[in-house]
Design a protein around this nucleic acid. Sequence first.
RNA 1: GCGCCUGUAGCUCAGUCUGGAUAGAGCAUCGGAUUUCUAAUCCGACGGUCGCAGGUUCGAAUCCUGCCGGGCGCGCCA
Length: 545
Amino acid sequence: MEIREKIIESLQEALKKIKVKKYPEVLLERPKEREHGDFSTNISFSLAKELKKSPQEIAKRLVKDIRPDSKVIERVEEAKGFINFFLTEELLFENLVEISRKEQDYGRSKMGKGERIQIEMVSVNPTGPLHVGHSRGAAFADTLANILEASDYQVEREYYINDIGTQMENLGKSLRARYLELLGEEVAFPEHGYQGEYLVEIARRLKDREGDKHREEKIEFFTQYAYSDIIESIKKDLEDFRIRIDSWKRESDLYKEGKVKEILKNLKKKGYLYEKEGALWFRSSQFGDEKDRVIRKKDGSLTYLASDIAYHEDKFKRRFDHLINIWGADHHGYVERLQAAISALGHPKKSLDIVLYQLVKLSRSGKPVAMSTRRGEFITLREVMDEVGRDVARFSFCMRSSYSHLDFDLELAKKESPENPVYYVEYAHARISSIFKKAKEGKIEKRKIQGIDLKLLHTPEEKSILKLLALFPDIITSCARSYQVHSIPNYLREVASEFHTFYNRHRVLSEDAELTQARLALVEGVRIVLRNGLRLLGIEAPQRM
RNA sequence: GCGCCUGUAGCUCAGUCUGGAUAGAGCAUCGGAUUUCUAAUCCGACGGUCGCAGGUUCGAAUCCUGCCGGGCGCGCCA
């Protein structure tokens, strides 16, 4: 049981002695001031009105009735109406033992109860390489997936490939133009063509391998060729960025399997489709969308919405308990209509969550960098990895709320790299590894934690560390609840900071053999938490730097 | 014009969901610390009308309304 729950329980016991119509929810917060305890609650304020007593009075009364579980709560105090809880040392020591016992499992919880969640992530159109904007979404989604897995959800990560439509035709036309160019023919570049250098390279590879034998080939051939080449490079990029994808779903398969037709039939049967001005419309406004949407155009071709609805119905058929889509904020206009479709199909609106992330505002030395896949102006994920490194990129992209507009300056990220938070955290880990190496060299053998007198850890620095380490599971569950990840990097920074402070004031390896053992146990706890936290971010904790 | 996100220290951002105690970090700037397990470190100082104006409340960065600035989106495009 979490510490938090234990405190809440003891408070609820005391609350029973006070008669009110409705008991307010007990909310615990972490006070900013150390003297306000380890946890505090403002519950007496919410009771004040009904009881017609001052919060101070109520708090005092509650404090008297709280029977501090001596194993958890050292003491409870009333202060200006707040109730402040101070944790016992024993609890923190016990927690350290638990960290050491659970090791890589410390921080995991049973929150999800094995529920199946599918996360749709990245899903970049296969018309060009992944660029830096996509990589924020990828890093964010992958980390969120890791967090949910650590919270006992079964997660499938899926990449949805829009591999049909006008864009693919334009891609084929563009490759054909580049190929013919290389063969010395003069061709007009297609109007909506993709101008990026990568297509020239694909054309060159095609020519080098197979010469001019595709001169008369149809567009379809070039589309397929470009598609395979690009999707392979996307897979490689994701792999190198350590993004795991479990399932690749192609839009064209939905058509082949007849699922789009099926969904139209289904919607029609339910009466959610109607003809107007030669087109077929979906009554999305009935389900909260601002207006109805076209699902089949005048020319008979289907819109994206058609296959998207089919796609989501397909997801539900695959029996997930919950769906999460991670989308760039530029797609937010699409959220309502998809939610409308989900409702129309009879699924609870809550079964699909769409988490948006704001796009990265990329700059170089303060100058904005323009991004456009079609014009071929972009910084690729590959370039970011080469330039600032995978770990810096992943950490930076996850450090902020997905809702905040992230500024990412390439030069700054490089220049500041020695002071970059990710190195700060990694450095703490490397220092600890170094201590253990040194201990080994000095023939100091770390004993089992059960036989160590942890009471020797009594300095303020040691206590802060113990308290902070105890919060780790809480941080993870709150991320899992909110579908946000930025508390992880921020928490790790805090852990590293407490460790560095401790390190500068105290020695781990000393003449005092007992104290040495206790401190080795402490820094081992820090090491485990840092490593587990970094793993959630997809970053390997280094032994040395 | 409408919709979504956003505005907190010189810069980049936590905190806003669930109102609470003196609004927190990092970077930058300035000053200090090492005969010691990694100085990619530590300690200290400086720095705030929480965009503006109202409202609700015992209490507002947090909730409500209006306004202003920034980003994104708003097609029978993809």
